[in-house]
Simulated scan of single mutants.
Amino acid sequence: MQAPKFAHTSQSFHVELKNRINDYFANTGKPTTGGIRLFGKAAFLLITFCYLYIQLVFFTPSAPWAILLSILLGACTAAIGFNVMHDGGHGSFSKYPFVNKFAAITAEVLGASHFMWNMKHNVIHHAYTNVDGVDDDIDAKPVLRMASTQKRYKLHKFQHLYFWIFYCFLHLYWVMMSDYRKYFAGKIGDIPLKKMSVKDHITFWGFKILHYSLFIVIPIVKLGFTDWLIGYLSFTVVAGFILSIVFQLAHTVEHTEFPVPDAATNRLEDEWAIHQLKTTANFATKSRFVSWFVGGLNFQIEHHLFPKISHIHYPQISRIVKQACHEYGVVYVEYPRLDQAVASHVAFLKQMGRA
């Protein structure tokens, strides 16, 4: 499927939103990047990650403690992805490009190619959210059916019961298979990859070797295969489930839409900003801990509309976006509590499995 085009309007809602957000930053004098609050959080997460890794590999705690620390390492890995890598990849971590680059490549150490992630997430997902055949994030077939336009199999009738098993293996699949499929195919779905330079190829393979050395070779040498396997599975299952559920709660719930381009013109009905609002949901917006842990990605609407603004500012600018949506009669999907969003996601999967 070719990437569709968005509708053009004489009075762009996106322009109105940008003007209001620009006024907010001009009036408050705040930078759009993360600042000291984000730097402090990043330092805390990275130091915690290093501490947990060193304790597990070089000091060999007893089995119960080792499993607990492995679980915490998985949670910390997800948190680094949300708070450090994600902002860095969008250029919102710092005003300095080299700092953003450093933040972004934490993905490489944790096992995911930043080159592939940038293409999959920044270029495709952020532009064509929930467009089946283009947005790779809703392509989990044949295991899961994430859109009514996807083929339904008998097993999908039970996907609202078994989905969590597959979410647990996202990180493992990402590290061991997904990046390689994209690399050797030269495309994500039907969208060709940007041409990789020699440096990109070296970075891809170099960091893969580093990741496998840190998380497979060294631990097996120090701990033995069985202890490593138990710890590694505890680590990757937790990281995978957290990464999966956060992104799914933002897009695959009952009230988000899955627009289909016009067959004749390959054009979507709405302009880009309204498309983002219709396909994206906020969740757990009343929880400060969730906001802190997931790097503001529970304010997914604001992130999709303004990805180059650090997540530190999302709770504040969400009021501006919500007010503009109210004035212009534009949908704003929000689940104030985490349990509401999870229940809606389960209901969505049930609906997709039985439609």
Rank of each mutant, 00 (worst) to 15 (best):
Q2Y: 08
A3T: 14
H14E: 14
I21R: 10
F25C: 01
G29P: 10
K30R: 12
P31W: 05
L45V: 09
L46Q: 13
F49C: 04
Q55P: 01
L56I: 06
W65F: 06
I71W: 10
I80E: 11
D87A: 13
D87I: 14
G88C: 13
S92F: 12
K95R: 14
Y96H: 15
I105Y: 13
A107P: 03
V109F: 11
V109L: 14
F115A: 14
M116W: 02
W117T: 07
H126S: 00
Y128T: 00
D136G: 05
A140N: 12
M146C: 09
M146L: 15
T149E: 14
Y167N: 02
Y173C: 11
V175P: 02
Y180H: 12
G186Q: 03
Y212Q: 11
P219G: 04
V221D: 08
D227F: 10
Q248G: 02
A250V: 05
F258L: 00
D270P: 00
I274H: 04
K278C: 00
R288H: 03
F293R: 05
L297F: 04
Q300V: 06
L305H: 06
Q316W: 08
I317N: 09
Q323M: 01
A324F: 01
E327V: 08
V333L: 04
S344P: 09
H345P: 06
L349Q: 03
K350M: 01
